[in-house]
Design a protein around this nucleic acid. Structure first.
Length: 497
DNA sequence: AAAAAAC
């Protein structure tokens, strides 16, 4: 990728946003369609973007004023002439004393992680360029953008100045918890933009305009607030997309995200945008770069990780061949539930809400205590189940992909793929991004962990094979499926027993 | 043979 010999890649790492005049008088749907069409065009003739040729390797970072010898897997590209120096200590970042206190006292951080060291100077140095940032699961991305939001907000201005958009309710709440903790001494105000539970319901018309300085929420509620003119955007200084690849993917939240982006650029001319995720497939990467360049008409910096280097080394991946669907349930019962308690908490991922209910019921009938979360539950139940799991009151959580991304619980050491993640409409194709995100629920911040992929059909074997090849990751077979000793060995091999 | 997210 970095060593493709492209003539200008080593000396000139400038990214020039393609010029673009946004169509003004069209509906959002029209605009989104045009963008989709334009993207297809890009794929046909990608000569004008050439992202890959612009990605430089570590040995060349020094020339850009960016050095981090420890970091062998994050490649960064800076645009323009702004020099950035990797931050070895939080003191290097010109943060307020209140914010530093939050980092050290509340968060108990000692020094920036790799992605923080590289990305924070890019985020916090004027002229506050936009940033597309990829980094490993559990490597501290949340700290980057929460710190970014807290340090860019002016505590004296009682208006919304920072906005963070997330794909799920759970992720928004989790990010808010980090913000409250880190910003404890700053006096900065914040509010969640989420559908309220019954107890807190107030009709939108009766709500006063939002004055909180940092807003974190999901696209639906944010759109609703904007529609009812309850959320002013004129003072917005920083816009963050968490799980940005999903927020900009065609099958994700693309239209909503673009609508909000455009609303912000319309009323706030100089808003910085940050896109964070552990995954950016090539199509989304190109689209994200184009969108940031076109909508925000500003230079942007980027940092990416090669997909072969994205797997977490501390998390051991296994596969288990099961003779039929029922034996998959027996593996959960006889191996995972029996052994899992010794190694921490477990998340069992399933493909659908129906499978979640089926598995839940089967295990409860066998006398086990498990909880289940999926999007069809009511808000009160969702919040309660997450709260119990985060407090360690429950050991095993069955989940759809609602928790695949971002969910941060350090005690989760075991992830089970009861069903492998596949692409909707292409059921023989793995969803590589979802796979990687699920794996990333274990092994937070370098902790040890294990993943068991339960295979049953021939197609499962094929999908597993593709995943191994794509990430160049070693997935060891554990078997036979009903051998306790084999599972114990696997957990020992992962460093968990 | 899907999940997420607004009424």
């Amino acid at each position: 990728m970095a060593d493709n010999g492209s003539s200008d890649s080593s000396t000139n790492a400038t990214v020039t946003p393609p010029s673009f005049n946004p169509p003004e008088m069209k509906s959002w749907a029209d605009v989104a369609d045009e963008e989709a069409a334009a993207e297809n065009q890009d794929e046909a003739s990608s000569a004008d973007i050439k992202l890959d040729s612009l990605v430089i390797d570590e040995s060349k970072q020094g020339a850009l004023g960016l050095t981090n010898p420890d970091d062998s897997t994050i490649e960064s590209v800076t645009s323009g002439d702004t020099p950035y120096t990797s931050a070895k200590r939080f003191e290097d970042l010109n943060l307020s004393p209140e914010l530093l206190k939050g980092l050290y006292v509340e968060m108990k951080f000692e020094q920036p992680s790799k992605i923080q060291a590289i990305s924070l100077p890019m985020i916090l140095t004027p002229p506050y360029k936009n940033l597309i940032a990829q980094a490993h699961n559990g490597s501290g991305k949340t700290t980057c953008f929460v710190l970014g939001m807290l340090s860019r907000v002016d505590p004296k201005v009682p208006e919304p100045q920072a906005l963070c958009i997330c794909p799920t309710r759970e992720l928004a709440i989790q990010n808010m918890e980090v913000l409250l903790k880190m910003g404890k001494f700053t006096g900065i105000t914040s509010e969640l933009a989420l559908p309220p539970d019954q107890a807190n319901y107030i009709p939108i018309q009766k709500r006063p305009p939002i004055t909180a300085q940092v807003i974190i929420g999901t696209p639906g509620t944010l759109s609703k607030w904007l529609q009812h003119k309850k959320l002013g955007l004129s003072k917005m200084k920083i816009l963050v997309f968490d799980e940005a690849d999903h927020m900009l993917a065609m099958s994700g939240f693309r239209d909503e995200s673009i609508r909000i982006m455009k609303a912000i650029t319309k009323s706030s001319s100089n808003c910085q945008v940050l896109l964070f995720s552990a995954t950016f497939d090539d199509a989304v990467k190109a689209f994200a770069s184009r969108i940031v360049g076109e909508i925000f008409l500003k230079e942007y910096n980027q940092m990416f990780v090669k997909k072969e280097e994205l797997s977490l080394e501390s998390v051991k991946q296994y596969k288990v061949r099961c003779p039929d669907e029922h034996s998959k349930i027996m593996v959960i019962k006889d191996q995972i539930l029996e052994l899992g308690e010794k190694v921490g908490q477990t998340i069992v991922f399933v493909k659908s809400r129906n499978t979640a209910s089926m598995l839940h019921q089967a295990l409860v009938e066998l006398g086990y205590e498990v909880t289940t979360i999926q999007g069809a539950l009511n808000i009160e139940d969702r919040d309660k189940i997450i709260k119990e799991f985060k407090e360690g009151l429950t050991q095993v959580l069955i989940s759809t992909d609602v928790l695949a991304r971002g969910f941060d619980q350090s005690q989760v050491n075991l992830v089970i793929n009861f069903d492998l993640p596949v692409q909707y409409g292409h059921f023989s194709e793995p969803d590589y991004e979802v796979y990687l995100h699920r794996v990333g629920r274990a092994g937070r911040f370098g902790r040890k962990g294990a993943v068991f992929n339960l295979l049953c059909l021939d197609s499962d074997d094929m999908i597993m094979g593709k995943i191994e090849k794509y990430f160049n990751s070693q997935i060891t077979e554990v078997g036979p499926w009903n051998s306790r000793a084999e599972f114990e060995g696997a957990l020992r091999g992962a460093g968990l027993l």
